[in-house]
Every structure is written in C-alpha cells, then in structure tokens.
C-alpha cells in the first residue's frame, strides 16, 4: 500500500490525486491521506506531496471537462469538509467519475459516489446555515464584522452570497477556527486572508463599540416568541446550540 500525504487544501488534494494517478501502482494499492490528520500504519510506504499549481490546475480542468461543472462543485465542497477521509473519498469518486462521465452524480448506489455526495451535502448544509446564522456587528469605523466557528471550511461558500447582498459595505467574516477571513471592501471583490487570532482581537478591540440595534434585535427576538407554544426542543433542532456562540440574540 502506498499512502500519499497531501496538504490540507484544494491544491494539495488535487496534486495528491494527480501524483497517485500518474504513478499508477493500481487504484487498489494507493490511498490518499492528509498530512496533519492521519494515523501511521506499519506496512505502508509514505510519500509526501508538495502542492503544485500546475498539477492541481490540470486535475480541476479535467474534472470540469470530462465529468461536469456540477461534479467539480461537489468535489470542492467535499474538500472543504473537516473529515479526515475526504482526500481519499474524492480520489475514489474521481475514479468512478472518469469512468462514467457526467451521469456519475446520479449513481448513488456506487459507494464512492454516495460517500462524496454525503460529504458535500453536509458541507453545503452547514454553509447554508451560516448564511442564516452569521451575525454582523457594526464597528465604530462602519465595518461589519462577523466571527464564526464552523466545522467545515465554509468561508469560501458564504462569502459570494454576502458580496452579492452587500456590494457597498465593508465587511469581514472571520473564521476563528482556521484563523482565516473573507474581506470585502465597498464596491470591490472579496478576498480571503490568513489573519492570526490576536490580530483579529486587536482589530475588534480598536474599533469595537456598543450597538443599539443589537439591543433592539434582542427585544424583537424575545417578544416574537409565543409563550403558549414554547418548544425548546424544536428550537434546538433548527438552531443547534453550537451555532449560538456568536449569535447576538443568545449572547
């Protein structure tokens, strides 16, 4: 068994897939793992893969050309997941994908397809919930700032939505688990940047302010619930407690 250790990023995973395919000891004898999330095994050869833009570009292009654009989006979402098996799952999915072409996404009876489908759905659901539950606070300099602690790397999936929604605002969405931010300037495109936690805290410290509209929102939130129908179980089903960490109305 040869195990390819790739870096945890889209480029890293795609480069790993390129190299595993190129070396071709047979798909059954290859596995992909992530550098920082693997259990070493005794009877395996390890090979570390350095991310390579050219190779990952080629993989991305073949997925879009030979399978479909939708398949590429599914693979990207699966790569944003936090599960350690995601690199290998994508590899197995692509084996089926290059065999069947565009219809592969419908072939849910193939275990490899079902696996990537499940990963991708989980990430997509979490991203959608962050569209709902992200809360911006207005800082003294007018910047809208939101902190989130997602399980998957959702920032790439939620930022386009907010860029479309608030084209003339300056806003920042900060993922405090991966220490990564999506930053949008008024009238410009959004970018992502690695920002260490202490820098983000310093920024908040410098510009933080109390906001009356947050109090108004809490007032609204509490008066809109009907006491006679109180149902905390139902509330928790729709809005799990772990999301509430950064939400204005639960602070």
């Amino acid at each position: 068994m040869r195990i390819f250790l790739c870096e945890d990023s889209l480029e890293g995973i795609f480069t790993g897939i390129y190299d595993a395919w190129a070396q071709d000891p047979g798909h059954g004898h290859v596995r992909l793992s992530l550098k920082d999330q693997y259990e070493p095994e005794l009877f395996a050869e390890y090979e570390e893969i350095e991310p390579d833009d050219g190779k990952s570009e080629k993989v991305a292009r073949s997925i879009q050309r030979k399978i479909s654009g939708e398949a590429f989006r599914v693979v990207c979402r699966a790569a944003f997941s936090a599960r350690p098996e995601r690199a290998d799952a994508i590899y197995r999915f692509l084996i089926e994908g290059f065999r069947y072409g565009g219809r592969v996404l419908r072939l849910l009876q193939e275990p490899a397809v079902a696996e990537v489908f499940a990963l991708s759905r989980k990430v997509a659901n979490e991203a959608h919930q962050y569209l709902e539950f992200i809360r911006f606070e207005q800082l003294a300099n007018g910047v809208l700032f939101a902190s989130i602690s997602p399980k998957s790397r959702v920032i790439m999936l939620v930022a386009p939505h907010f860029a479309d929604r608030f084209p003339d605002e300056n806003w920042v969405i900060y993922d405090d688990v991966r220490e990564e931010a999506a930053i949008h300037g008024a009238g410009e495109d959004w970018i992502t940047a690695k920002i260490p936690k202490d820098q983000a805290d310093a920024f908040l410290e410098a510009y933080g302010s109390s906001d009356h509209y947050e109090d108004l929102w809490k007032t609204f939130f509490h008066s809109i619930g009907i006491r006679e129908r109180e149902n905390p179980n139902c509330q928790r089903n729709f809005l799990p407690v772990w999301y509430r960490k950064h939400m204005t109305e639960f602070l």
């Binding site: 539950f133 479309d164 929604r165 003339d168 605002e169 809109i224 619930g225 009907i226 129908r229 729709f238």
Partner: peptide, 27 residues
Amino acid sequence: RAGKKGSIGNSMAAGICHSFASDGRCI
C-alpha cells in the same frame, strides 16, 4: 433576485430563516 451595485440586498428562492424563536418558529 441578485444584488446590485448601489443597492442593498438580494433574495433567494429557497428562503432563508435567520433565527428560531423560543417556540421553534422561524424568524
């Protein structure tokens, strides 16, 4: 409805719930 420069907001056909009140109904 997509957003637009010079305006604020967009809209998604699926709808977005932003919070859930103590009765479990969506806000």
